[in-house]
Amino acid sequence: MRSLGRYLLIRTLLTIPMIFVLVTLVFLILRVMPGDPVKSSIRPGAPQEYIDEIRHTLGLDKPLYVQYGDYLWDLLHFDLGTTLSPVRGQSVAKQIWEHFPATLELALAGMFVTAVVGVGMGAYAAHHRRSVADYSLRLYAIIIYAIPVFWLGLMFQLIFGVWLRWFPIAGRISSLAMAPKHITGLYTLDSLLTGNWAAFKDSMMHLALPALTLGLYLSGVFVRLTRSNMLQILKMDFVTAARARGIPERTVVYRHALKNALIPIITMMGLQFALLLAGAVLTESTFSWPGLGRFLVERITYRDFPSIQGAVVVFALLVASVSLLVDVLYAWIDPRIRY
């Protein structure tokens, strides 16, 4: 187990350059690329002194390398600056923190849908290779990937929300007064923890369509990943050996083989997490889900440059930490791997 600890340390250290590159990239995009975020954030015709003042408070009047140094220094202290508009002077970090649980809740629920649908269908397709079901599922994987996630969401809203009236189509909960006591910030979990059944039911109803949308969007990728992994595993000797021992086919495929296939799938989840976040941004906008993605898009319309920068940096940190987490998980699950 000591070697696992060492691996953890090394892996964590390896994440640092990646975070550094991403953070630098955000800086380059937002400050060095042509286009002035401040000018575009202010109504045309504003007095030059006003613009200069804002530039000064943001430190944009300093030389670039000083800006870059300040930027990194602030990030080290988790200081994401203060907002410009619609209200000036609020802490960006605090606002992001408030929006984060909604995104987390959606992402987890979406991941759950994906895991159930994608992995299940992928395993089934591999098991029944070259059957009609296999070809249909492969085609499903391609088609679902080609469907824009926000359009999928709109169609669900139309069918299940407007026509059938089964689910609400916007927000996380019917009224803020109904929201459960803040523990984790995930409404479904908090309402469950506090035994608030009305809020639980309501937040689950609100979560259903966005989670289904996001989950199905990603499921195509997982059908393919699971299928190709399963095909490789099913060709391995130990699968043949298990069959030769008379182990029932179902057990061989869904216990022995699938368990082995899941390990590489977990690592690939790391890369798919980026896709999940991108999907979440669009899903949040579709369902007026008050998460980080909607926050980012909303602040873009306000041209609130510090919030944009903060949100993008947080997304970068999320990606880096999830990829770290997944690798650690992988090392922990697979008995063969000890670094």
Partner: peptide, 24 residues
Amino acid sequence: SLIMDSVYSFPGLILAIAVAAVLG
């Protein structure tokens, strides 16, 4: 490779949003 891998791991749409927000 480090730079490219980092960018590759980043959610594409969010990156595009950031660039589009600046470029117009």
